[in-house]
């Protein structure tokens, strides 16, 4: 289960992003990108992300963001940071620890 709240340019994610909730995660990001060039994904209370969620972040960077748009990943927990390192997410996004 996941709860995502968009405020200004920040998307706060609470709960788990997996194949059951990945679409909500993607929709929240796309909604912010309609009006903001710099968005922050607040992962402070994100408990979990699976390869589906990681795939959304990869696709966002590779195929959706334009040169003027940026996404910052804010304070992912240690276990999630480990997955970001294994999959190369940490190489393509700025991560605020």
């Amino acid at each position: 289960m996941v709860e995502i709240t968009n405020t200004d340019n920040i998307s706060k994610i609470v709960g788990e992003v997996d194949i059951a909730t990945a679409k909500a995660f993607e929709n929240a990001i796309m909604e912010l990108l309609e009006t903001e060039d710099l968005i922050v994904l607040d992962m402070t209370d994100m408990e979990y992300i699976d390869s589906t969620g990681i795939g959304i972040l990869m696709n966002l960077k590779k195929n959706i963001l334009n040169d003027n748009q940026n996404v910052v990943l804010y304070r992912p927990k240690r276990s999630i940071l480990k997955l970001f390192q294994l999959t190369g997410i940490d190489q393509i996004y700025k991560i605020e620890k």
């Binding site: 795939g55 990869m58 190489q91």
Partner: peptide
């Protein structure tokens, strides 16, 4: 095996093997 930093999917078995 996925090409890290290039592919947008196909990480499932790779993550299991890695962890």
């Amino acid at each position: 095996e996925p090409v890290i930093g290039e592919q947008v999917g196909g990480f499932g078995l790779y993550l299991i093997r890695s962890l």
